[in-house]
Design a binder for these strands. Sequence first.
DNA 1: CGTGAGTTTGACAGCGCTCAACGAGGGTGG
DNA 2: CCACCCTCGTTGAGCGCTGTCAAACTCACG
Lengths: 242, 242
Amino acid sequence: MSTHAAIAAHANRAVPGYLVSALAISPASGMGAAIQPRNPADPLASLGHSKVYERETTVFSEGDAAGSVFRVMSGMVRLYKMLPDGRRQIIGFLQAGDMMGLAFAAQYLYTAETVTATTIQRIPRLELDALMDAQPAFARKLLSATTSELIAAQDQMVLLGRKSAAEKVATFLLRLSDRKGGEQTIDLPMGRSDIADHLGLTTETVSRTLTKLKSTRLIRILVGGKLELLDRDALADLAGGF
Amino acid sequence: MSTHAAIAAHANRAVPGYLVSALAISPASGMGAAIQPRNPADPLASLGHSKVYERETTVFSEGDAAGSVFRVMSGMVRLYKMLPDGRRQIIGFLQAGDMMGLAFAAQYLYTAETVTATTIQRIPRLELDALMDAQPAFARKLLSATTSELIAAQDQMVLLGRKSAAEKVATFLLRLSDRKGGEQTIDLPMGRSDIADHLGLTTETVSRTLTKLKSTRLIRILVGGKLELLDRDALADLAGGF
DNA sequence: CGTGAGTTTGACAGCGCTCAACGAGGGTGG
DNA sequence: CCACCCTCGTTGAGCGCTGTCAAACTCACG
């Protein structure tokens, strides 16, 4: 049934697979909404156009006709699917370089909303197809990025299916840190309910777990939605392996 | 954290996205281990060679050097990841046409084991790469297959993160049926613990849930690991979407 | 300073897990 | 060919983790 045509390789826990999934953004282009002049490291730079979205804005919804793909240039986006009765599962949080809406069907199959103010590049599917035709190497790069996505999705399955609440939260925090290159201090711009819906928990359980980590001196919660990892090793133990 | 470079489209519940992920096998080639003469519908047919694996055999293990990709020609394979303490999450069950081991890293990141006796085509990565170079359209096809995988993985996240035991089992049964084109009678060659480790449950809960479905006349358990869906609509209600 | 959304904390309950025993096949060896 | 055994599946009893419901608290914002 699920997850055929799967993928493999990558056993290096220090550098999670999904890191490579971010398609290169030239360092200078991080913030601007301007179209980038042709950049050999970023074949997408000259395509489509960028736009700034306010925080808590819908970019597209599950079921919308899928005419474009998107790339997050800065800020944060959540992707989620909903069950008919309203239960929500957040598929992932996107940051700079991540793509969404890559599709081979007619409609988007999840909803994308900004968490913070976010700059997003919109690329018409036709332009993307043309680029793949013109640069076969780019198709390979897209395949590689999608593969990395799949790897991340599989790790998330392990988390959702087999980890306890404490392990889930610890894993989540470590992933955010890894994504920042192992920084001690990480951003938590999303709310508790976002975290809960990503980890298969409730807001109360997330809150309680963070409180416990705080009182155990494993983390410190800072102002402005920031959080500091005080004992990375202890957190890694708690996480029970990725 | 997860699932960047994501995908979209496909809202048609009747035909699950992962169906298209199976790379075409020419009808005649389903069983044989012989190398297929060039078949325009199946560019992979002439690559590598096939081999029959006995039931409950390891094809490759998480961490093994990844030199080949594999395609299941017949039978069933389970893919899983394990946590250090032995907890197991089955990523998916593969059937005819499904691929595994597609990698862009040096090692397989999950273990593949046969459930039943299975014919598997092994394709050296070098040959696959050559094919992608020679036929750009094939790279697109692989990308499409991987995308479908990702879609299936995302559905599985919803299941694992937000569904009750009854919903999980009902969804699982319906997926198996869909995979067979909507047949009422499905095969369950895998054991209860396999199902449990796929759905994030225990064998006892799976067993209890099936018993309940049986006594509610929604399913009937047949001999030889087969199972009949007696009330598809009621099961779909129970499944809570998807 | 008032208001409201989001977070935290508490009390309690229930779903699903754990531990345990029993039953049903299926394979093996005497 | 049958008895034994071993694995797997089923069923039961009890409990614990996490969800539910509710209230207090914090803080940003007007």
